[in-house]
Amino acid sequence: MEDAGQVNEWFMREVLPLEPLLMRFFRRNWRNESDLVDLRQELYVRIYESGLKGLPSQTKPFVFMAARNLLINHVRRARIVSIEAVADLDAMNVAIDMVTPEREVTARDELRQLQIGLNNLPPRCREVVMLRRIEGLSQREVAAQLSVGEDTVEKHMMYGMRALINFMLGGSGKIERKPKGSRKHEAVGHE
């Protein structure tokens, strides 16, 4: 049994930096984009709980093996399994080995990404995030400067930081504001 603080640290230091790679793996092997957030969460829960029992000696192969097993379970649970999905799953062993090593991400790349992520935000939201995070103003100061309530500042922060973080960690940076309808039941759907 590992100490929770240690597991938290391991999770942030070794697991989360793999997210861009992991999301690419999911996208390649799973048709339905709207499932990805749930798949990612389910995977993280499994990895974290397994980490509590004992940290793996090598994080990356462990994470991708867990990701593969998760997808296989999902396909088995789905009522209708397309032939294509089965073929993909066979190919997945190869896919895991082929997962390209992370390109060394420099501070410069990250800065560029932050800039793009900021540009993708709605103007008002971007302004709030920049005043708070980049110019270091307090919530109250931002509210005063923009003549809005502090709760409005908080709402912009919640929306903006979430979009920015998802973008920085390799997602699309778009946030669905409303449920997208009934697509979530097509576990292995075709376009």
């Binding site: 942030m12 974290y48 501070a107 990250e110 932050l114 973080i165 920085m168």
Partner: peptide, 20 residues
């Protein structure tokens, strides 16, 4: 895990913001 992920992203944004 959701909280850890947000904290991780938050730190990265702040680190970049300090440079930027």
């Amino acid at each position: 895990v959701a909280m850890l992920r947000m904290e991780y992203g938050w730190q990265r944004v702040d680190r970049m913001a300090a440079l930027r």
